[in-house]
Design a protein around this nucleic acid. Structure first.
Length: 421
DNA sequence: TCTGGGGTCCTAGGACCC
DNA sequence: TCTGGGGTCCTAGGACCC
């Protein structure tokens, strides 16, 4: 049996852990750039707070209801996530970290009462991290997703834990489960299924395999098996090596100034390069892209992207900045107001696996040491204390807005919580 | 003024090879 | 006049996830 554990309204709950005065009160968290609402706790949802709505459209209403509003604080959420995962790993032989707030677990075979096991998971996470979690237990991953929904649906009665252990329960759940809520079925596919009179998960597993394979590819067929209770997906205990690393961020304003966009791009390249080095990878391919603000129909629109094959795979910030600048020149067209710029790096390999380019061997081997020093200094004195000149000094002019940012309680000594001062 | 970011997997089509 | 089949690599784009 497998279990899915997820933290209830994760971002909002993280904020509340350090603000006990907000217990039982509505809390929402905004996306990067304070753009829209990406998390709302139960109290906020009860007020009818809409998710994914642009924040500026609803903020006045929220304030009227006394909703607490936070900018997203990823250093805090990332650290809390790590603590949750470490806690869970004390109660299972195998754990897959599925997302920042979810994990799949192998239920130990010695656990006879699955309800009690679920409660134990909840209790320990709450005691060790202060965060509330829900648990779904079932024979396959797709079914644990269903169970997890069920646990939330009648929270009080189910006590945040739901078990699908036999065929009757499974059938009853699937008959009571909308097809668009199935893990892996999105809007488009749901629409096509509804057109075929397939409305519930139960209807879905009645479809002929041949049709599912043809219309929804192997992924769809795998999903059908999983819902039938036949495991197709294993726990991925060691996270698979990343295929791509990137950053695709909006800038705070709509920018026309080429130089300023280049500085933002160089800044993002540096961030990505740090991620790359942390994972001990070098990249062989780069995609640079650029977009205007598609939410402003009154503006002229343009978006483009370009790929570069790097002559020698690298994780060196100056080298990556150099290639990003080349790519940028290919796609930049003056006269538009740009909103989003970024890069993706792919063809990632470990540095020892790289094949030297015979005609253009690494021209600056000392950069490896330089990058180590740079990373160490930036870890110690703060992100981008040391950076390439191309990242510039005008970050204030393009950086994302974060007007409601909470302290980094758990990862930054200067921002640690004070008690009784 | 203000509308998320970071990913994965799959398919299709073209270029090119033998 | 007739114009194959199998394979790989690359790129673009769709769909989905949290």
């Amino acid at each position: 049996m497998k279990a899915l554990v997820d933290v209830n309204s994760f971002y909002a709950s993280c904020e509340q852990v350090f603000r006990p005065d907000l217990w039982g009160r509505p809390v929402v968290v905004l996306s990067n750039n304070d753009g829209c609402i990406i998390a709302a706790n139960r109290e906020a949802k009860a007020l009818g707070v809409p998710m994914w709505k642009p924040a500026f459209q609803v903020l006045p209403e929220l304030e009227k209801h006394g909703v607490s509003i936070f900018s997203s604080n990823y250093p805090l959420y990332g650290d809390m996530s790590k603590r949750v995962m470490e806690t869970l790993s004390t109660l299972t032989p195998a754990l897959e970290v599925y997302s920042i707030d979810e994990a799949f677990l192998e239920v130990p075979e010695t656990e006879l009462d699955l309800q009690i096991y679920g409660q134990r998971l909840r209790q320990r996470v709450h005691q060790w991290t202060g965060l509330p979690v829900g648990v779904g237990i079932a024979p396959t991953k797709a079914l644990t997703k269903v169970a997890s929904r069920m646990a939330k649906r009648e929270r009080e009665r189910n006590k945040n834990v739901f078990v699908i252990a036999d065929d009757e329960t499974r059938a009853a759940c699937l008959k009571d489960f909308q097809v668009e809520d199935i893990w892996g079925i999105g809007k488009r596919i749901a629409k096509r299924l509804h057109e075929r009179q397939v409305h519930t998960a139960w209807d879905f597993i009645q479809l002929p395999d041949v049709w599912v394979r043809k219309e929804l590819t192997v992924t769809g067929l795998r999903l059908k098996r999983e819902l039938e209770g036949i495991p197709q997906l294993q726990l991925e205990v060691t996270p698979p090596a990343k295929q791509m690393i990137g950053t695709a961020k909006s800038v705070g304003k709509n920018l026309e100034d080429k130089k300023l966009i280049q500085e933002a791009l160089a800044w993002y390249v540096a961030e990505v390069a740090v991620k790359l080095r942390k994972q001990n990878r070098i990249a062989g391919r780069m995609t640079v892209f650029l977009e205007t603000n598609r939410f402003r129909p009154e503006d002229k629109q343009y978006s483009n992207q370009t790929q570069l094959k790097l002559p020698v795979p690298t994780n060196d910030t100056p080298a990556l900045c150099h290639y990003a600048a080349l790519g940028f020149e290919r796609i930049f067209v003056p006269g538009y107001r740009y909103k989003k710029v970024g890069i993706w790096l792919s063809n990632l390999v470990v540095p020892s696996a790289v094949q030297q380019n015979l005609f253009d061997p690494d021209p600056q081997p000392r950069h490896t040491q330089l990058m180590q020093v740079m990373d160490r200094i930036n870890t110690k004195y703060g992100k981008a204390t040391l950076r390439t000149a191309s990242a510039g000094f005008r970050r204030e002019e393009w950086k994302l807005r974060q007007q409601q940012l909470s302290p980094r309680y758990t990862t930054c000594m200067d921002e640690i919580m004070e008690v009784g001062s």
